[in-house]
């Protein structure tokens, strides 16, 4: 049953991703991307990463795709021609893709039978992540001094619980840096999208040589 759902979700994700790349209509591409991300969230659920599945749907399929759709509709981009830029780019694409697939095959060949989940980890990752039952890999890391066993907490099978614990203990500094990053991004977006003052545009001088409308046709409507 697991295998059936895995193949279903993987095929859906790859199919809709192909539709993103090959589709001619940007709006359709954005919607296909959203569906593809929902399939990926389903794969996350199969990997028992429920928190990340929710985040994936909320942030990537929700916020990011709405932003993309908003910009596509704001700029009023019509149907694009389907052909690639040049034949040489098409060739380069396939050479690159083939090379990457070759690398992938090489990597997967290193462990042809694959890492099984069933025997090593009985049900959920929860029990081994609590620090009281470290896996061999974790034990090695702990022995090498690269990882500290976490303090025992009440038994929980919840991945959100564990992510919260680790995020606010071991990874609290990167987490804080992330907030700074978002602040900088916000300021940057505001600066980028600010309308240029008309005075500055006049003093630029060279802009007048080439008559250009100040804003796109779609953007003037917002004034």
């Amino acid at each position: 049953m697991d295998a059936f759902f895995f193949w279903l979700f993987a095929a859906g994700m790859i199919g809709f991703s192909l539709a993103v790349v090959l589709g001619r209509n940007p709006v359709g591409s954005a919607l296909c991307f959203a569906v593809s991300m929902i399939f990926m969230a389903s794969l996350f659920v199969m990997l028992s990463a429920f928190f990340l599945a929710a985040i994936q749907i909320l942030v990537t399929a929700g916020a990011v795709m709405v932003l993309f759709l908003f910009i596509i509709m704001l700029l009023d981009i019509g149907v694009m021609s389907h052909l690639p830029r040049q034949k040489i780019w098409m060739g380069a694409t396939f050479v690159l893709a083939l090379g990457f697939v070759f690398l992938l095959a090489k990597v997967l060949n290193a462990n042809p039978h694959g890492t099984m989940l069933t025997s090593a980890l009985p049900n959920a990752p929860a029990t081994v992540l609590m620090g009281r039952h470290p896996t061999p890999f974790q034990q090695n890391m702990i022995n090498a001094g690269q990882m500290r066993p976490l303090a025992p907490v009440p038994e929980s099978n919840d991945d959100t619980h564990q992510i919260g614990r680790v995020l606010f203990t071991r990874y609290v500094a990167p987490f804080e840096v992330t907030s700074l990053l978002i602040l900088v991004a916000t300021v940057g977006v505001v600066v980028l999208c600010k309308e240029e003052a008309p005075v500055r545009r006049k003093t630029a001088g060279e802009v007048d040589a080439e008559p250009q409308p100040e804003t796109g046709p779609a953007l003037t409507a917002t004034r």
Binding site: L47, A49, I55, V64, T115, T178
Partner: peptide, 23 residues
Amino acid sequence: SRFNGLIDGQIFVFFVITVAAAE
């Protein structure tokens, strides 16, 4: 993360999603 039994991979995905959104 799932197959190694380490939650750290999921933390990284959390960060990647955040950075991707800002980007």
